[in-house]
Structures are given as C-alpha cells and as structure tokens.
Design a protein around this nucleic acid. Structure first.
Lengths: 192, 192, 192, 192
DNA sequence: CATGAATGAGGGTTCATTCAT
DNA sequence: AATGAATGAACCCTCATTCAT
C-alpha cells in the first residue's frame, strides 16, 4: 500500500542518483516495485512527479522551519534553531536534499512557481527573525535586507551542497553553531 | 571563422535558455549557423561541449580571480576585489553565469572533476586571503576554515543566483561592498 | 439494470463520436456508468462490442426492412417503403447510423463477415423487389442485377452519409420519395 | 531517392491493408525501406501522412475528373466520361481507392476539411453536368439537385466499394456504361 | 455480479550521432 | 572541412485486459 509514497520516494531516490532528465520512468517503477503504467495512476507525467515532490514533501519541511523559529525567544536563538533544523532535515533525507539543491539552481519552467514560493517563504522567515533582532537591538540596523536574506540562505545552501558532494560523510548539524556565529559576528576581528 | 568559439557561445546560450538536457544539437547548430555534423568536428559529443566550456571558458574567468587578489595589499581589500570581479564577470556573461550555477549544483558525473577543481580553486583563493587576514590581525583566528570558504562562496553564489532569477534587471556589482561588509562584520551589533 | 444495453448504447455513442479506435474502454464505461471491468462481463473484448452491435442492434433494424417490403403489393411501393423505413430507422438512431456507415466502408477483418452478411441481406431484399417489378412489367428487364443493387444501396447510403455530415440538421425521410423517383425514372427526360 | 514518394506509397499500401489506426510507423518504414525516424523528416506525424495523401495524391486524381468532363460535348457524354475516368483511376490505384473510401466515411476531424472539399468538388462537377443537360433538354428539370449529386456519387462509390471488397477481381471500368444508363433512364420501364 | 487498481506490451516520436557527398 | 539526410535506440505514455476484493 501507500503506493503513492513508494513511487515518490523511489523517484526522488532515482532523481538524486542520476538527475531528473537522465532518470527514466522504468527505473523509477522498478525502484518502487510497480509497473511503469502504475506511475501514471498517481502522477500526470514525469514532470508532475517533481512538482508533487515540491508540493507535498518540501512543503512539509518548510513548515518545520516555521515551527523552528516560533519557539525560541531571541532572534539569535531563532536563527540558530532555524539553521539547525534546516541542516537536520536535509541531513535526514539526503535524496530530498540533492534533488532540492539541483532544482532550485535550475532555471527551468518546471514548477518554477513552487520553487520560488518556497525560497521566498524561507527568506521571509529570515526577514522576520532579522527584523526582530533589530527591534531587540541585537542585530544591526544598517542592513540591506534583500542582501542579508541571500547571504544567509546562500551560505546554508552551500554548506549543504558541500556535504552532499562529500558523500554525506560528516555530521551536517554540527555546522549550525559555527555558521550562526559567522552570520552574527562575521569573520573580522571585533573592532572596539 | 573561429567556428569553435561560435559553437561554444551558441551552446552556452542555448543551455542557458533551456538547460543542458532540453537543448538539442540541432538548436545549437542553428544558433551557431553551422550544420549539425560540424559540431562533431570540434566536440566529441554533446557532453564534451559542457566539458570544454569549463575547460576553456570558465578557467579563464578564474584566472581573473587570481589576478584580482594579487593586486591589493590587505586581506579585506583582496576579498573586496575578488568579490567585485566575481560579480563583474558573471554579470558580463549572463549565459555563462546561468550554466555555471546550474551545473555546479548538479551531482552529475559529467565533468564533475572539472567543476570540483574549479570550486576548489575558488575556495583556495579565499583560504589564502583569510589566512593573510589572520596574519594581519584583521581576521579572527577562531574560524573553521572549511566553513568560512563555504560561507563566502555560498553567499556570493546565491546573490548571483537571485540576480539571474530576477532576469538580470539590477546591477550586480553594487552588491559587492555590502556583501563584504556582511562577511567581515556579520549582522550582529558590535559588542565591546 | 439492462446493463448490457446500457453498455452497448454507451459504446455506440462513443464510437460515433470518436471512431472505434480512438474510443477507450474507460470512456465507454464512464458513459455507461459502470466500472471498466464490468464491460468484460458482457463482452469478450473491445472488438466484441462492435460485433455484438451488428449481431443484435443492426440485425433488428434489418428485420424491419424485411417487414417493410412485405406489406405493399407493388414493387415500386415495396421499394418506396423499404427506403422510407431505412431512412427512418437511421434517422431515429443517429449514432447507429454513424457507426454503421463508418464500419461498412472499412476493410477490416473485424466482424467483416457480419457486415457482409448484413449488406447482402439488404441487397437480397432489393433483388427480390426488382425481380418482382420485372414480373409485374414495371421494371426493365435489361438490367444487370448486381449493379442495380449497388446503385440503390449506394445512393441511399450516400444520402444518409450526407445527412450525418450535415450534423443531422434536416429531415432525412423526406428524401425517400424523390430518391425512389430517381431510381425508377432516372434523371433523363422521358423519350417516347 | 524520391524517398517522400516511397514513404507515401508505402503508407497508403499499409493503410489499405490494415486501416490507419492499426498501421504502425514501423510497418510503414519497413515497407518503404527506410528507418522509422526518416518518416519524420518528411511528415510531421502519423496523421500528416494521411493529410498529405489527400493534399497531393487525391487532388491530382480530381483534376483528371475536371479534365474528363471538359472534352465531351453533351451532358450524357460528360457524365459517362466522368464516371469512366473515376472508375479507371480508382481501379488503377487500388490502395488509394481503399484508403479514400475508408476515410470519406469516417467522421474524424483528421483532414476533414480536405475530404469535404474534395467531395464537394466532385459534386460540383456533377451539378454542372446535370445543369448542362437541363439546358440541352436531355435531363429532367424537376430534380432536387442536392439529391441528384448524392444519388450519383453514392452509386459510384458503392460500385467501387463492392469491387474493393471483392478483392478487385473483375474489371471495374465495364460498369461505367450500365451505371450511366441507370442514372439516365432509371430502372423503371419507359411509360409513354 | 461488480469494481477499479494494477499491469506491461506496444507505439509514436525525438534526437545524438554517423557518413556519403 | 563542412554538410545534413539518414539512422535506430531509447523513452514517455496509453490503454486493453486482468484479478483480488
């Protein structure tokens, strides 16, 4: 049962391994243990598998991000928690991470809207946290927010990307604290 | 003639537009104004076009990066110059930027070595600069270098990525200074 | 229930709309309000639906034709009645008419026997009527019967065909009398 | 060489044998002695083969019909000549005849316009001939022209149809004179 | 009887690559 | 060197048919 989940998992696994375009329906079907045609009972076409991946799998991850920032009280703690959860979730599901990284850096029209929406949601969270920090007085006020969001998002993405390309050897989550430290304090020495 | 260049440019243009897998040799040939078969006089196969793109086009860019860090005296200025040149070069050749961004986030075997080599070269430059700063006393010593490299590389990449997805509307180079500022000082307020 | 009838009607309706090969079992099932599998309880396979259409639906029509020629006394009246009933029946069930017209002009092996049998039955009726007329002295004796049968059958078919392609707008039965007039007297002026 | 013709001929041959929908591109390619893909150099898709058949092959036939009615002086001779040429041409190219017969009785949207146009052209020729006869005084004036056209067209079609289904055994052209005789004089005895 | 999820063979179509000219 | 017609393997997708429930 839960054939939908089995197919989706198989697909993401195959996509992660070979990339979307080099993956075939036959491979996915085999991996999922179903017939080729069965896939079309659950997905409109090959593209739709990716779209649904975003719609159902990724959305749920991003809800965890919202959750992550809701608990801590201070901006710094919120940011720390967000990044920790981010790294945690991507570490937990490496295939998802791979497919997500690959697709967000593609400029295809395939589900572009969803991806953009998702990325925006992430950056919105960052915005809120940063703004909170500014109100708290713990974060600088002379920041161009659009850039800050990219700055944080990009750094986290690249840390994940490196981890993926390393073969997922080391523990990704341990990067969370040093990374937040860099975000907050930068690499420069503290000038008094 | 320079048919080789014409084909390479055409290919990158088509890849940028549609992605590598959705591009066809016929499209590239048409864009380059040559016959389909002619492409095979200059490239072993479709994949080889991408490989050569890295080998000849991208390598030259990265040489500019080396150059960029050689002139300034201080670490901060070197970093500023590196990032400015990086954004400049990618802004100058948007198609290259698109293809580069897409391919570096793929985990294909296609020319993976080259990409890794290129990324490593970039991160090596950062390492050197950061180490210099540490010697100068302008950059913190309590840094995990592997992370710092990703931190900077990722942030710059994402800034470029955003610019690409925005359609290349705004001036990318103006981001250089605020970005370096973030790298050096972070987002936190200066605690004495 | 009469599920058999419902399926058969649905099938003919769908075949009429899209043609046999472009119709799917799923469409027929939906139109009939049954499950796909249910169709296979009543029909051996897709082809069998067409075969049974001929066997049960069309056969009954042709029995009306027999009836039609049995009542009138003279050959001309028999012919007139035959054609009137023919047009009537096809007008009454347009879907049947469409499917019948399409299939009789196919040279498929699918139920060819039945179609041939049916067409032969029709032409036999004409033969009998014409022979009666010859005995009566109302119909010429210097006729090649094989041709006369095609001549009448073809003309009627084409009149129906035109009506179908017109979208069934006008009243088909009104064509009966003028058509019989043409059969009997031809288009030439009466030479004494 | 003349690959276009070879493919078109092969296609019509295969369509005639098995019907359009049951024919495969692979069969056509094999029959034409080319690779499957080669067909797509000359035809947009499978449907297009049929469309082009009408556009190039059939159109040329119908031009012969025009020619046929242009030479004789009297209406009767024109009609006789038209029908003789019609039967001749269809006898000469039996595959064309089969495909033509099948398609004109389909109510598909595939090239419907062309078929309608062609049929109309044929019936226009008949109209002109009949009207000429009426002016000559050799053809009755009390005729519903729309019906007369179907009457003649249908009878000829059915004669061809029978010939096809008989396997093309006998000489189709010998039917021309007796058929015209039926058209002109009808089957009834001459009443004074 | 009835269902409809599952199957998998089959077909149309694309496109990287070759090769005769 | 250059061409572009030809190739045919490969892939997505459809749909008639089956069968466990």
């Amino acid at each position: 049962m839960a054939k939908y989940q089995r197919i989706l998992d198989a697909a993401i696994s195959v996509f992660a391994e070979q990339g979307f375009f080099q993956s075939t329906i036959a491979q996915i079907a085999k991996e999922a243990g179903v017939a080729d045609g069965t896939i079309y009972l659950y997905f409109k076409n090959k593209d739709d598998i990716l779209v649904q991946f975003y719609q159902y799998k990724t959305r749920q991850i991003f809800e965890r991000f919202r959750e992550a920032v809701s608990k801590p009280a201070t901006a710094e703690e919120k940011l720390r928690c967000l990044i920790r959860v981010h790294l945690q979730e991507f570490q937990k599901d490496r295939n998802m991470a791979i497919v997500y990284q690959a697709e967000t850096h593609q400029n295809r029209t395939l589900g572009t809207e969803l991806i953009k929406e998702m990325s925006k949601m992430y950056r919105d969270i960052i915005s809120e946290v940063v703004e909170l920090g500014q109100e708290e007085g713990t974060i600088r006020r002379d920041l161009y927010m659009g850039l800050v969001k990219r700055f944080i998002n990009g750094a986290v993405d690249e840390v994940i990307n490196s981890w993926i390309h390393s073969g997922g050897k080391y523990d990704l989550v341990t990067m969370a604290d040093p990374l937040v430290d860099l975000f907050i304090k930068g690499i420069g020495v503290n000038r008094q």
